[in-house]
């Protein structure tokens, strides 16, 4: 018997614009694999953010819309409310979700919209050239924090997974990373769990993925991955923060 790992059907066979070693490509593939596995390719609708993943609609082989910067959760809300039979997910970066779109993510989560949000956190604005993000780590140098981020004047990195966990409307929260193979598999399982919850009509799921930006971290891709494990996970601890249904089942 032959077993084969191939490109998922839900990922178009095209080259991405991402830099070498960028985590977006891995996350795209994971979403595509899960969509295939759940058999929802023909009823899934994605919302692409403004940021490096803005062209996600060119890579996913299913229906995808753009959204204005930060507004993906509001757009996804409108989609899901209008067509509850569709499986709707928003794909957002850290500037999109945790800076300009803070209101939209918090309120979509608090309303418990029946959508899934995939949050790719690489601590930097990639598309505009490496500026500081709300999730940039203390001391991390960026285009707009040339001396390294200073808590006193620039605040501390925002921990979105922890922030959203407190809302009753949120049913599933996990922070994972794509730093090495077993973490990628965990991220895949988290994406699957969050989408599965939506397929079952059970509410808002959120997956934060720590992802490398080798270009604007100024690191080789392999070193960037180590940086996630060694430094980023200290600020952003990995783990399943919430799964209402698993907790209910355990009780």
């Amino acid at each position: 018997m032959k077993s084969k790992i191939t490109r998922p059907e839900s990922l178009k066979n095209v080259e991405t614009h991402y830099c070498a070693g960028c985590g977006h490509g891995i996350v795209h593939r994971l979403i595509a694999e899960v969509v295939d596995e759940l058999g929802i390719r023909e009823r899934v609708v994605g919302v692409a953010p403004v940021g490096c993943a803005v062209l996600a609609y060119d890579y996913f082989n299913f229906d995808v819309s753009e959204a204005a910067h930060g507004r993906a959760p509001a757009v996804a809300t409108g989609m899901k409310r209008a067509r509850p039979d569709l499986i709707v997910f928003a794909y957002q970066g850290d500037g999109d979700l945790a800076a300009i779109g803070t209101a939209e993510i918090i309120h979509a989560a608090n309303r418990g919209e029946g959508i899934t949000v995939i949050f790719v956190n690489n601590g930097v604005y990639g598309m505009t050239g490496g500026q500081m993000a709300p999730t940039t780590m203390i001391g991390q140098k960026t285009e707009t924090s040339p001396r390294g981020r200073i808590a006193e004047s620039e605040g501390n990195p925002i921990r979105v997974a922890e922030l959203l966990t407190q809302f009753d409307g949120v049913k599933f929260v996990e922070r994972c990373t794509v730093s090495k193979p077993h973490n990628v598999l965990k991220a895949r399982a988290a994406i699957k769990a969050a989408l599965q919850i939506q397929v079952e009509g059970k509410g808002f799921g959120f997956v934060e993925i720590l992802s490398p930006c080798p270009t604007y971290w100024g690191l080789q891709p392999r070193v960037a991955m180590k940086m996630i494990d060694e430094r980023m996970t200290e600020v952003f601890p990995l783990g399943r923060y919430k799964n209402v249904y698993a907790q209910a089942a355990a009780r």
Partner: peptide
């Protein structure tokens, strides 16, 4: 569907979302 949105920014983008999937909003 009625949603009292968190802002007019959100409201118009919810309209955008409903419009994208083919609904009158």
């Amino acid at each position: 569907q009625f949603v009292q949105s968190e802002s007019e920014l959100a409201a118009i983008n919810m309209v955008f979302g409903a419009a994208v999937v083919g609904a009158r909003a």
